[in-house]
Simulated scan of single mutants.
Amino acid sequence: MMILGLITQELHEQLLDPKNYQNRTNGVEELKHIISELNLTSVPPGSIVEFIHFLCSLLDDSNFKVLYGTLQVIRLLIQKLAFSLDKYFKRIVLVAVKALGDTRTVTRTEYMKVFRELMEHVVPQKVLNLVVGRLSHKNSRVREDVLNIITAAMLTHPRSEFDIPMLCLEVAPCLADCKRKVRQAALELFAVFDHCLDIGKKQPLTKAVDMVELNEDIEGLMAAVQARQARHILPRLSSEGLTEYALVVPKPGQHCSPQLGADLDWVLHGGRMSSARSYRNKQDSDRLFGSLGSLTDDLPLQRKIASAGKGKNKLPWEMSSLCSLPKGKSSEKVRANTTALHVVLWFITIYNE
């Protein structure tokens, strides 16, 4: 098989050689040279469509050099098609999104360049209309990449080129995503939305957040969004075109201040987890005091537990009459359980003091 005006039969076979990855990587390098030198105005439209479809199969290659080289070919193709990109950009976008979610920085940098190149020649909102559907992708890295593509676009192009109300509604569910990085990317993007909306015209943003809080039955999201806005600092683009977040999130194990702020707390824990945690803590507390009720109802807790401070030779569970049981296996079991119970009660009292 060959693509008229673009790929010979020999090069086509080389690019798809399943046995020799070196043939495939060499073939991609040759393909880059061909596209960079070719005048695409002489190539039939049908061949260009066929070629874009063929690039989709190359993105499935397991070899990194083939994947990376194919992304470079796509970017070259966009540059060459600038004169008539409106005819082909939908197909190119649907091919390029296949690469999203890659863990390697160099690959992510390259496909971000592809989308940046597309939006240099096509109205950005047209590109984003095709990308936002991936916000529900099962791979969280893909969701994160899509959010960063939108952020990069809005930091680069005039706000008039975007349908911000629509984007607010599409992005808002990601604020409550189960993955921390996705929540962070969405929160950063909402800071950009807020910056782009004039004072008195922020209803699309608040409406989108309210809908998520209502539909997901969570609390604290609006406070997190407002806390992020109050920082008055936007994400920015690195020299490589990658999104750099303004909100610095502590890394796992890193010491952080107890007063994180509603936005950082949201990124770290999320509404669902925070609500579930506080609910579980309340339930655990209720269960603890409820289960101890039969043993402690007769005396106030403060009187039941003695101090282990200065002047005392014994800890409270050592002095308890409940520990004074006859010896034996059953008695030892009761004594052990009772001792553990008093340890818990003692720590609770010390904590409350």
Rank of each mutant, 00 (worst) to 15 (best):
A276D: 13
K138Q: 10
V209S: 00
K80P: 09
Q283L: 10
L40T: 04
I35S: 08
N23T: 06
L85C: 01
M222Y: 11
W266A: 14
A336L: 01
H195T: 12
E332W: 07
A224N: 05
L94M: 14
G309K: 02
S238M: 07
I164S: 00
D198H: 09
V127P: 03
Q302T: 15
L299H: 09
I218K: 03
L55R: 03
L221F: 01
L187H: 04
M154Y: 03
A340M: 08
V132K: 09
K207E: 15
S62C: 12
K202D: 08
T156C: 08
K329S: 14
G27F: 02
S140F: 11
T103K: 15
L67A: 01
H195S: 11
A306C: 14
V248Y: 12
C178M: 14
E110M: 07
A224S: 09
L147Q: 00
L260D: 01
D177P: 02
Q9A: 12
R183L: 11
V95F: 05
G5C: 06
M319P: 00
S84P: 06
E110N: 05
R277C: 08
M166Q: 13
V192N: 00
D286R: 13
R134E: 11
H33Y: 09
S57V: 05
A230R: 06
N139S: 09
M222R: 09
D17E: 08
V334C: 06
R141G: 02
W346M: 08
N281E: 12
S238Y: 09
R236L: 14
P300L: 06
D284I: 12
T107W: 04
K113T: 10
F162C: 04
H137K: 11
